[in-house]
């Protein structure tokens, strides 16, 4: 564990807590893409198949349970909670994400570290996470005004993978046999997808104005 990865995990945890706060405090999920939440639930379920087979550390196991539990809880809330579900922007959140799922799974069948069930699903989860934010970014552009908590949620979600890129650089420099090309390239693509969001987020922060994404 290094400081970059810890910062990344904490930033990721903060993004989850901000989202839970928004949904719990406002009893609303307006501006949140259910499709992105479902993609993230798939990412965690596919990535943490080793949850019970490989014990890395208590921290690792607890964080995996937190991410799986929170993503499933958010999906459940947005689909079935009688108050929250009413504020879901169903007509705006129309990204056909099964194309993404199919493409990522196909890529994982071709490009993986080892051809085993667990490794193919792990690579699938890495590719899928890189594009999982797309429905959310599309929804933000369509819904125009972005409330603060939603903006902060997306910001922290994007920032965490940027910390992971620093972590991979650090591990590449300090660990002789460390190579995680799949994670690195996907992480770069993932962070690049947030580039324009980060730009408009910075502008809104600098001008102390409401976050506006151009349609």
């Amino acid at each position: 564990m290094n400081i970059f990865r810890l910062a990344g995990d904490m930033t990721h945890l903060i993004s989850v807590l901000v989202l839970l706060l928004k949904i719990y405090a406002t009893k609303s999920c307006s501006g949140i893409s259910l499709k992105t939440q479902e993609l993230y639930a798939m990412v965690f379920l596919a990535r943490y198949l080793d949850l019970f087979s490989d014990f890395i550390s208590l921290y690792n196991t607890v964080m995996k349970l937190v991410f799986i539990g929170s993503s499933l809880a958010i999906v459940w809330c947005m689909r079935y909670h009688r108050v929250v579900r009413r504020s879901y922007d169903r007509e705006l959140d129309t990204f056909r994400y099964w194309i993404l799922v199919g493409a990522c799974f196909t890529l994982a069948l071709v490009l993986h570290e080892k051809f085993s069930f667990q490794e193919v699903f792990w690579a699938f989860s890495i590719y899928l996470e890189a594009v999982a934010i797309l429905p959310q970014l599309v929804l933000l552009q369509r819904s125009g005004n972005v409330d603060n908590l939603t903006g902060q949620y997306v910001f922290f979600l994007g920032a965490y993978r940027a910390f992971y890129i620093l972590n991979w650089i650090y591990r590449y420099l300090t660990e002789p046999r460390f190579t995680r090309w799949i994670s690195c390239v996907s992480g770069l693509v993932q962070t690049a997808l947030y580039a324009d969001f980060f730009y408009y987020y910075f502008i809104s922060w600098k001008n102390n104005a409401k976050l506006q994404l151009p349609a």
């Binding site: 490989d54 792990w122 992971y164 660990e175 046999r177 995680r180």
Partner: peptide
Amino acid sequence: KDDSDAKDEL
């Protein structure tokens, strides 16, 4: 599995 190739990252 030594540390570097174990999936020790989240």
